[in-house]
Simulated scan of single mutants.
Amino acid sequence: MPDRTRLRLSGIVEESIVDGPGLRFVLFTQGCPHGCKGCHNPETHDREGGFVRDVEGILAQYDENPLLAGVTFSGGEPFLQAGALCAVAERVRARGGDVVTYTGYTYEVLLARTERGNEPDIARLLELTDLLIDGPYVEALRDLELLFRGSSNQRLLDRKQRRALAAGKGRNVA
């Protein structure tokens, strides 16, 4: 069973304006299976690298800044540690913050994984995410003018857009 009380991270940025809307607290998760050519964070790929922090300590650090709009989960691949990130997301939302999650998977791939019924943490993290930025980084599609993204194949998907995508595939998603 995955540990829901601790996260393996490559870094924490306490104040960012480039990783989602408003002033963000950013957790860079450690571990990534995608291996995107030209990745901005290649040091995050090794699943055994980085450092471990407990959820309580992360939340205490988040609480130090009342100006934060919310938390951003970046990586690495956040969905590798969905359970512990759910614990952070639930508590940030309870404090009035929002959740942005970056992933190298597409929303459709994540949704299909949740439909198998054996990955409830992925389903829950999708539910808790206000803005999903999906898709692998594609170096040939790099565009420095894009808001919050590195390549033009990556999408900014809010809850309404995700519901529409799921409905188009005949799926029931909140």
Rank of each mutant, 00 (worst) to 15 (best):
G97S: 05
E15D: 11
R24K: 07
R159D: 04
A112E: 08
A94H: 05
H40L: 14
H45N: 12
D46A: 05
Y62R: 01
F148G: 07
L131F: 02
R113C: 05
A87L: 01
G50C: 10
G97F: 05
F28S: 03
L7C: 07
I12T: 06
P66T: 08
D121E: 13
D158C: 10
I12N: 03
L9P: 04
T101E: 12
P42Y: 11
L85T: 07
A82N: 09
A87R: 03
D158I: 13
D130H: 13
E14C: 03
L110Q: 01
L126S: 08
G22D: 07
V99D: 01
E115S: 02
G38H: 15
I12L: 11
Q61R: 12
E48P: 00
E145Q: 14
G49R: 09
A140P: 08
E43T: 07
D54N: 13
K160G: 08
F51G: 11
V13D: 06
P136Q: 15
D134M: 10
P120L: 15
D3W: 04
L111A: 13
R124G: 14
R142Y: 12
E139I: 09
F148C: 01
Q154T: 15
Y62S: 06
E56A: 13
A82V: 00
D143Y: 06
G76K: 08
C32M: 02
A60H: 11
L85G: 00
Y105N: 03
Q154N: 13
Y62M: 02
G75Q: 01
P2A: 14
R53N: 03
G97R: 01
L141W: 15
R8I: 02
L27M: 06
L27H: 09
G104Q: 02
L27Y: 04
A94V: 01
E127N: 10
D134W: 07
D19E: 03
G20A: 04
L147P: 10
F25V: 03
F73Q: 14
E90S: 06
P33D: 15
L132I: 08
G20M: 05
G22R: 06
A87V: 08
R6I: 08
G83W: 03
K37D: 15
P21Q: 10
S152G: 11
F51W: 13
G22W: 00
T129N: 00
A112C: 06
R91N: 01
C36Q: 11
D46W: 09
R24S: 10
S152D: 08
V100F: 03
E15W: 09
F28I: 07
R8F: 00
E64F: 03
V138R: 12
R95Y: 05
K160V: 12
G104K: 09
A82S: 13
L156S: 07
V173C: 10
V55I: 02
R93P: 01
G20N: 01
D19V: 13
V26K: 12
Q81R: 06
L110E: 00
E14I: 04
V18K: 14
A89K: 05
S152R: 14
G97C: 13
G97D: 10
R95N: 08
R163T: 11
S152A: 15
F79G: 05
T5H: 15
T29Y: 05
V26E: 04
D19M: 09
